[in-house]
């Protein structure tokens, strides 16, 4: 039973990463006004929304199974309050941050007409940060980081998001050079940081210990 839960946590996490990547892609497609006669824009907008809701569903299972499972010491509070966990506090905490951000983004989007489009848009910029946080969490907490299939998944997701971000920065529209340059610079810094950190951290042997996995999990103690 425990094994099932633990594997569910890992699987749903990976699926959620895939979904969030899809959400970011669709969001950027909306922003750069992709679509028209063959792919109506309201379809893109609808998929963006539905994929987010589906992703939230996977994340609920992801967090729920992690809590129920007794292999790692994660409790209910850790799903909402970041950086308080006994298990890989920083890297798990990033997942919590991403989850909370996603919740806020979803709620504010559903209440968009109430809060006004300007505030909504400012908030929605954090979607990019949300994705990066979730990505780092996946690498930092994931148990499968050095499994080729996971590496492929992460690599593809990363490349796709990078591509659409570049598309958005270069997309036609109001010039706003400063904003575009700032976005490009930020993206570059984040990219360099994530690559450097992954190479030095999760991709090297011995990461689990350095990441803050307790030496004896309650489960193994009982055995």
């Amino acid at each position: 039973m425990n094994g099932l839960l633990w594997y569910s946590t890992r699987a749903t996490g990976e699926v959620a990463l895939l979904f969030l990547t899809g959400v970011v892609v669709l969001g950027v497609l909306s922003a750069v006004r992709f679509g028209g006669r063959r792919v109506p824009r309201f379809v893109i907008a609808g998929m963006h929304r539905n994929l987010t809701l589906a992703g939230l569903g996977f994340l609920a299972v992801h967090a729920g199974t992690a809590i129920l499972d007794s292999y790692a010491p994660i409790d209910l509070a850790d799903a909402v309050v970041p950086f308080a966990s006994a298990y890989r506090p920083i890297w798990l905490g990033l997942g919590t941050v991403a989850f909370d951000t996603l919740l806020i983004l979803t709620v504010t989007s559903l209440l968009r007409t109430r809060i006004g489009v300007r505030r909504w848009r400012v908030l929605h910029w954090s979607a990019y940060a949300c994705w990066v946080t979730a990505f780092v969490h996946a690498l930092g907490t994931g148990s499968d980081v050095r499994v080729p299939v996971f590496l492929l998944l992460a690599g593809v997701c990363g490349a796709v998001v990078l591509a659409v971000v570049a598309w958005r920065i270069a997309a036609p529209g109001p010039r706003r050079r400063g904003l575009r340059a700032g976005a490009a610079l930020t993206a570059l810094i984040v990219l360099v940081f994530v690559i450097g950190w992954s190479a030095d951290g999760p991709l090297r042997p011995g990461w689990a210990k350095r990441a803050g996995t307790p030496a004896r999990t309650p489960d193994s103690a009982g055995r």
Binding site: S30, F42, A45, G46, T113, G116, V117
Partner: peptide, 10 residues
Amino acid sequence: RRAVADCPTL
């Protein structure tokens, strides 16, 4: 109503 809710710029 859906058009109103889905307008990207409200």
